[in-house]
């Protein structure tokens, strides 16, 4: 099976000079269609930079990135826009990622309009369906982001990402700011959407415990490099790298 995403020797350097190591320092990874790869590491390990480089929100300094066989590291103009329809992102903080002055309907519709995916009337219907699919209601189109709870706002961000019918989602700490109960509901929603739409996820998190139930495989990052990649069950039962062992040891051991 060919990978949906294949990254080789990716380098992201924010130009702090030679004194500072690169944020991403030679990362290679593949993600198969339909799987969830969790990218886990402490703050500063470079995991968010990997996600941003894939989406071309930061320019990689070196390396190759292939998406469905196409080199995406040098895409520009229309070709880049077409790629971004296929690859979307949900960020950690929906308070920051949703425009507070736009109504929910317009937020979700914007991508449909930019990519000319539907006429206005059909777009309306699509927005309604999306909101219902993520557990909100058609009546929410006229409301503003601040009228929703944190979990509901994250559902809006997910609906916005799905509006352009992507194949691939970068979920960058997408549930980290949520309460445990809300987190569980949003994770269940993401799993349902993945099954229904055949989505592929890159799930970025700082906490191993958060990825146990959603990830197919886990890659552990440290200081700009991937130090271990393993099936989720294997990583939890027999972590090989000191970094994975430390992350696992840090999960509080509840005395059941």
């Amino acid at each position: 099976m060919t990978a949906l995403l294949d990254i080789r020797d990716l380098v992201v350097d924010y130009g702090a000079g030679n004194a500072h190591p690169a944020a991403v320092d030679g990362v290679s990874l593949t993600i198969a269609r339909g799987e969830t790869l969790a990218l886990v590491g402490e703050s500063g390990s470079g995991k968010t930079s990997v996600g941003r480089a894939i989406l071309r929100l930061v320019e990689p300094a070196a390396g190759t990135m292939r998406f469905d066989g196409t080199d995406i590291s040098t895409l520009a103009g229309d070709a880049l826009r077409r790629f971004r329809r296929r690859a979307q992102v949900v960020f950690q903080d929906p308070k920051a990622s949703l425009d507070p002055r736009m109504r929910v309907g317009d937020i979700v519709r914007e991508g449909i309009a930019i990519h000319r995916l539907a006429s206005h009337a059909k777009g309306d219907l699509r927005v309604t369906h999306l909101l219902e699919e993520v557990g909100l209601s058609a009546a929410d189109v006229g409301r503003f982001p601040h009228e929703f709870s944190g979990g509901e706002r994250q559902r809006i961000a997910i609906a916005r990402a799905l509006a352009v019918e992507p194949e691939f989602l970068v979920l960058d700490e997408a549930v980290s700011a949520l309460d445990v109960l809300v987190r569980r509901q949003v994770l269940e929603l993401l799993a349902r959407l993945q099954a229904a739409r055949g989505l592929t996820y890159l799930f970025i998190a700082h906490d191993l415990a958060a990825v146990e139930r959603i990830a197919t495989r886990v890659a552990v990052m440290h200081a700009g490099r991937i130090v271990e990649t393993a099936e989720t069950a294997t990583l939890f039962s027999a972590p090989a790298s000191p970094e994975a062992q430390a992350l696992l040891a840090a999960i509080p051991k509840i005395p059941w």
Partner: peptide, 10 residues
């Protein structure tokens, strides 16, 4: 705090 630092502080 990061999870490993959290464990140390706890």
């Amino acid at each position: 705090l990061d999870v490993t630092v959290q464990a140390q502080v706890l």
